[in-house]
Amino acid sequence: MGDRVRRTGSPGNAAIAAVTVCALCAGAVLLRDGRGDAPPQPSAAQAHSELDAHGPARSSAPALPPSPPDRVRIPAIGVDAPLTGLGLTPAGSLDVPPADRPDLAGWYEAGTTPGERGTAIVAGHVDNADGPAVFYSLGALRKGSTIEVDRHDGTVAVFTVDAVEAYDARDFPDAKVYGAAARPELRVITCGAGYSPTTGYRGNVVVYAHLTGTR
Results as ranks from 00 to 15, higher is better:
residue 1 M to Q: 13
residue 1 M to H: 14
residue 2 G to E: 08
residue 2 G to P: 11
residue 3 D to R: 14
residue 3 D to G: 14
residue 5 V to Q: 02
residue 6 R to D: 05
residue 8 T to N: 12
residue 9 G to T: 06
residue 10 S to K: 00
residue 11 P to R: 10
residue 11 P to N: 15
residue 12 G to Y: 00
residue 13 N to H: 03
residue 14 A to E: 04
residue 16 I to G: 00
residue 23 A to I: 09
residue 24 L to D: 07
residue 25 C to N: 14
residue 25 C to W: 07
residue 27 G to A: 10
residue 27 G to W: 00
residue 29 V to K: 13
residue 30 L to I: 13
residue 31 L to T: 12
residue 34 G to T: 06
residue 35 R to A: 12
residue 35 R to H: 10
residue 43 S to A: 12
residue 45 A to N: 15
residue 48 H to Y: 12
residue 48 H to P: 06
residue 49 S to D: 07
residue 49 S to W: 12
residue 51 L to V: 14
residue 53 A to D: 13
residue 55 G to E: 08
residue 60 S to Q: 15
residue 62 P to Y: 11
residue 62 P to D: 14
residue 64 L to V: 13
residue 64 L to R: 06
residue 67 S to A: 15
residue 68 P to I: 10
residue 68 P to Y: 11
residue 70 D to T: 15
residue 71 R to Q: 05
residue 72 V to L: 13
residue 72 V to W: 01
residue 73 R to T: 09
residue 75 P to V: 08
residue 77 I to Y: 06
residue 78 G to R: 02
residue 78 G to W: 06
residue 81 A to M: 04
residue 83 L to D: 03
residue 84 T to L: 06
residue 85 G to K: 09
residue 86 L to W: 02
residue 90 P to S: 12
residue 90 P to V: 08
residue 96 V to R: 04
residue 96 V to F: 02
residue 96 V to T: 11
residue 96 V to C: 04
residue 97 P to V: 01
residue 98 P to Q: 03
residue 101 R to V: 03
residue 101 R to I: 03
residue 105 A to R: 01
residue 105 A to S: 07
residue 106 G to Y: 03
residue 109 E to P: 13
residue 110 A to V: 12
residue 114 P to R: 06
residue 116 E to R: 10
residue 117 R to K: 14
residue 117 R to E: 09
residue 119 T to H: 04
residue 120 A to V: 06
residue 122 V to Q: 00
residue 131 G to W: 04
residue 134 V to Q: 01
residue 134 V to R: 02
residue 134 V to W: 00
residue 137 S to Y: 14
residue 138 L to E: 05
residue 146 T to A: 09
residue 147 I to G: 01
residue 148 E to N: 15
residue 152 H to S: 15
residue 155 T to K: 10
residue 156 V to E: 13
residue 158 V to E: 05
residue 160 T to C: 10
residue 160 T to D: 08
residue 162 D to S: 08
residue 163 A to Y: 01
residue 165 E to R: 02
residue 165 E to A: 03
residue 166 A to V: 08
residue 167 Y to I: 00
residue 173 P to H: 03
residue 176 K to F: 11
residue 178 Y to A: 15
residue 179 G to P: 02
residue 180 A to C: 07
residue 180 A to W: 04
residue 187 R to D: 00
residue 191 C to N: 06
residue 191 C to K: 04
residue 192 G to I: 02
residue 193 A to V: 05
residue 193 A to T: 11
residue 197 P to N: 14
residue 210 H to T: 08
residue 210 H to S: 10
residue 212 T to K: 07
residue 213 G to M: 11
residue 215 R to K: 14
residue 215 R to F: 12
